Simulated scan of single mutants.
Amino acid sequence: MIDALISGRLYGIAEQRTGHGNSNYVTCKVKAMTDDGDGIICNVIAFNDVVREALLNLEDGASLSLSGALTPKVWTDKQGIARPALDLEAHSMLTLTPTESK
Rank of each mutant, 00 (worst) to 15 (best):
L55V: 07
I41M: 07
R17D: 10
L56E: 08
S65G: 13
R17P: 08
D35F: 12
D36L: 15
K29R: 13
H20M: 10
I13A: 11
T71L: 10
A62F: 01
L64G: 08
T76L: 10
D35V: 08
N22I: 04
V50R: 15
L55S: 06
L64P: 06
D77S: 02
P72R: 01
R52V: 10
N22L: 03
L66W: 04
Q16C: 11
G39D: 01
V30S: 06
V26E: 00
D77G: 01
I40C: 00
L66F: 06
I40M: 06
N43I: 05
S63G: 12
V50S: 12
C42R: 10
D77E: 09
F47Q: 07
N24H: 08
G68V: 04
D36Y: 15
T76H: 07
G37I: 11
V44S: 00
K29C: 02
G37H: 08
E59W: 11
A62W: 05
A46I: 00
S67H: 14
T18D: 11
I40D: 00
H20I: 11
S67I: 12
W75G: 12
R17C: 09
F47V: 04
V50Q: 15
R52T: 10
S23K: 04
A54E: 11
V26Y: 03
N22H: 04
Y25E: 08
D60W: 08
H20Y: 13
T18S: 11
V44T: 00
G68D: 01
A14R: 02
G19F: 01
E15I: 09
V50H: 15
I41L: 09
I40L: 07
G21K: 05
T27D: 09
G39R: 09
A54D: 09
V51F: 09
F47A: 11
L58G: 07
V74Y: 12
G61W: 05
E53M: 14
H20C: 03
G19I: 00
I45P: 09
P72V: 03
S65M: 10
E15N: 09
G21F: 02
Y25H: 04
A54T: 13
